[in-house]
């Protein structure tokens, strides 16, 4: 199978601190990868490089047959979408957040689609007009996740997004991510430290001290 994303000898360095060493990684389209490894090992850095949020120091990164440098970073990030570990919500209400992906594309919010997305992660339509300060940590995280998929990206990069959720909410998010992967063919890479998530992984990769180990 052709790789959707391909990394060759990717390095990342800040001053003389070597954070990623010669990372080679072939990520096929439609993969559902669990990425793990000790804290400070370079997992988030690796995902942020793939998300074009930071730039590798050296090596090549090919996305959909073209080097990452050939894309406009803004259009690229709409296809390779990164979700933060502890997301910040904008504005005052949930609607302000879910309208944002439409605003930046100069479109009017598709309320039907937004409500369906809310329902998919166990939130009701009522949430839409709720002030963000009233949301629990788990609700915030789910609202933030929806922001990333209102326009389906090709790749979804998730940085410990289930870390703040209770078991019940974790199950909801897992089922939803699986559905995005299987039905909508979104390639997903999810960073986690959660033993259950690691045990349930289809494909497991590990970043240890800046080096990638891929387990088939």
């Amino acid at each position: 199978m052709n790789s959707l994303i391909s990394l060759e000898k990717v390095n990342y360095q800040i001053a003389d601190q070597h954070i990623l060493h010669d990372v080679d990684w072939q990520i096929p389209a439609g993969a559902h990868i669990t990425l793990t490894g000790p804290s400070g090992g370079g997992k988030s850095t690796l995902l942020r490089i793939i998300a074009a949020m930071i730039s590798k120091t050296s090596g090549t990164l090919i996305f959909d047959g073209q080097p990452i440098e050939s894309y406009d970073p803004i259009m690229y990030r709409r296809q390779v979408s990164y979700c933060f570990q502890q997301p910040t919500l904008f504005g005052e209400t949930v609607a302000d957040n879910l309208a944002f992906p439409y605003q930046i594309r100069k479109q009017v919010m598709d309320t039907q689609r937004v409500v369906t997305a809310l329902n998919n992660v166990g939130l009701s339509e009522r949430t839409l007009h709720q002030p963000i300060i009233e949301l629990s940590g788990g609700e915030r995280q789910r609202v933030a996740l929806i922001r990333n998929i209102l326009f389906l990206p090709k790749v979804l990069l998730l940085d410990e997004v289930t870390a703040g959720l209770d078991e019940n909410n974790k199950q909801i998010v897992h089922a939803w991510l699986r559905q995005l992967n299987e039905q909508d063919h979104v390639t997903t890479i999810m960073i986690t430290h959660d033993a259950t998530e690691i045990a349930a992984a289809d494909q497991l990769a590990k970043v240890v001290a800046g080096r990638l180990e891929v387990h088939a």
Binding site: R77, T88, I104
Partner: peptide, 20 residues
Amino acid sequence: RQGVLERLALGAGLLDASIA
């Protein structure tokens, strides 16, 4: 900073990420 990074990650242009 975090809010700006998240707007960028969602594919916002520089003005959309900075307008507030």
